[in-house]
Design a protein around this nucleic acid. Structure first.
Lengths: 359, 359
DNA sequence: TTGTACGCGTTATCAA
DNA sequence: TTGATAACGCGTACAA
């Protein structure tokens, strides 16, 4: 099988060249366009290609030769299905896709870590180790992704990290989570609110919803940073940590928070817009008007499908730009230029879900 | 630069072999595990690799040699950001990822067609033509994807199509859209409904929301099939086509449908759960109770975040299975086995959003 | 503008 | 269990 049946084998550029009566290099140039070629020659080559059913250079061979595959890996912590449930990640992917497109690169979806005992190199999956990547983007590098990071760095592949700490030599795309959350909290404070509650994102990767104790370790960076911002303004705020960024999680949290009329807060700082939407729904359920009886703030600035007529008071984060920035950084590194870390800032949006504290 | 500075150049498997005092093929075998190697030899090779900072075979070269890249392309019609807004697609991706993982493959995101004049082969993007794909999965092959299909077929790459017609030689993963929709319609009919309206998915790729006239050409397969199912039971149903599968689109459609109390339908067949959720919201707005005053059905059987306490009457489609089936088909073709087309069927779920026709 | 020659880094095959 | 050999298909100095 080493020499395939001539009838079955796919045509190579040499075959095309021979058919066209030119040298392989000339044929190559016709396809790459790197060097001017006479029209007549081009015509002949193209015709020969058509005749032979040759559809262009084999990307694998070209990739080896060039030392580039045109593929950027995107590494997620979670199950891929989960990742795309998050509008912010979706938007980031969008920006990322945009930014790497002019580079001629595509995005390869990769999951962080093989489930269990992944000793066998055989059917281990695509994984970071075997994929022909030009660069990698790690999303949400909190602990789990450490290993992926090592792998990639060992391979000498340019890496960029979005929302996570990967050491000084790795460019990161960050957000002013703490400051933005503090600003939202301050806004509430200025409106006279004193008794507020926080509905946070998960405290840990495998978190189940529940109140956060003083001793609870918060290992998810985003959660920790935003929480810090809230506590900067309301040091005594009670925090209910959801199990994920979903409306239904916010609803559950809200029910818990509004359960006891005695201890009911006048405002709720939710760490995501989806959570906030759920909290609002819980408030409605409890017969509370937003914002007359209770103010609610979100985070992210995404469009929450079906939330109208409410417009959340929120910190609008430039999600698409974050993705785009990661792509740009990757592009820079691929061209040998250094890529700087970037810290994006959120924009405060007042919306209509906050108001003066009651009484 | 053809001969890189020896200091800078990355170590190759030959370097490792030399350092370990074995032949390149032996070193290769140590990494691939294809052939038994003595422990002593393995040790030496691994040590040498560590010493040289060699982290394993270059995927590009391996890919060329093996004729496999371990990459499956997933081709979308839309902007990638849009695609992941659709829960059904997200679930499909999930199943697909699962199914190709044991194959050792990853998913490369590809967009159907380059925006405009894409003559220059230079910065044209990843595109189907230049990506090192082992196989491709086309999603929603309705017209637009035709071209992509040609490209892929020309390259001789195995293709599978999800929800779309690609000719007899291409395996397709399909759904019994018409039958399932007919079943939902029959359910309403059995409940005594006679005056129903349909809220459909877009009639065309660039559709803007509005009523469907008798003369309106419906070019999106899914829309057409589901509509046919509805008309099988209610030939006179008026159809309002949304601009996409979103709650807000359903809301807009619902407002339009419930606007005139005289012509108000007693039931609405929405072509997706998200649209149905919007319709329910519109009903509430109009002071109508669901299902007492108006019944609403959806399609898809996804979890609509925030819709509780309603549980939609809907056709539950096995979205994840569809993706998984596509992956399995791809795997089969990659192993030279023929892959059969599969037609999945939806499961009727009664939910609590339908009831007897009023009066 | 075209052709020659060589190497990119692996791995399958087969013989030792 | 190991090693020699030969592709895999292409791009690109460099010479003509």
């Amino acid at each position: 099988m080493s020499r395939n049946d001539p009838g079955t084998r796919r045509a190579t550029i040499s075959d095309v060249a021979r058919e066209a009566g030119v040298s392989p290099s000339t044929a190559s140039v016709v396809f790459s366009g790197k060097t001017p070629v006479s029209d007549a020659t081009r015509r002949r080559v193209l015709d020969a290609a058509a005749a032979l059913g040759y559809t262009g250079p084999d990307p694998r061979a070209a990739s080896l030769r060039r030392g580039r595959s045109g593929i950027v890996g995107v590494v997620f912590e979670e199950h891929l299905g989960q990742a795309f449930l998050d509008p912010v990640k979706t938007l980031m992917m969008d920006g990322l896709a945009d930014a790497v497109a002019p580079l001629g690169a595509g995005l390869l979806l990769l999951r962080d870590h093989e489930p269990a005992g992944s000793e066998s190199a055989l059917s281990t999956g695509p994984s970071l180790t075997t994929a022909p990547l030009d660069a990698a983007v790690l999303i949400g590098c909190s602990g789990m992704l450490r290993e992926s990071l090592e792998t990639v760095k060992a391979r000498g592949i340019p890496v960029v990290v979005i929302e996570g700490d990967a050491g000084d030599d790795v460019p990161r795309i960050d957000l002013d989570n703490r400051e933005a959350q503090r600003q939202l909290a301050s806004h509430l404070r200025a409106l006279g609110h004193r008794r507020v509650a926080v509905v946070s994102l998960p405290a840990r990767v495998d978190w189940e919803r529940g109140w956060l104790g003083d001793d609870t370790a918060v290992t998810v960076d985003v959660t920790r940073d935003r929480l810090a911002g809230a506590l900067d303004v309301f040091p005594d705020a009670a925090t209910y940590a959801a199990a994920g960024s979903f409306i239904d999680e916010g609803l559950a949290a809200g029910r818990e928070i509004f359960a006891d009329p005695e201890r009911r807060p006048t405002a709720v700082l939710a760490q995501s817009d989806l959570l906030a939407a759920g909290v609002i729904r819980a408030a409605e359920e409890a017969g509370l008007r937003v914002p007359e009886d209770v103010s609610v703030t979100g985070f992210d600035g995404i469009v929450v499908d079906g939330l109208a007529p409410y417009e959340l008071a929120t910190a609008v984060q430039p999600a698409t730009d974050k993705g785009r920035a990661a792509g740009t950084a990757v592009a820079a590194m691929l061209e040998g230029r250094p890529a700087a870390s970037i810290r994006f800032t959120c924009t405060f949006r007042e919306g209509n879900t906050t108001g003066p504290a009651p009484e």
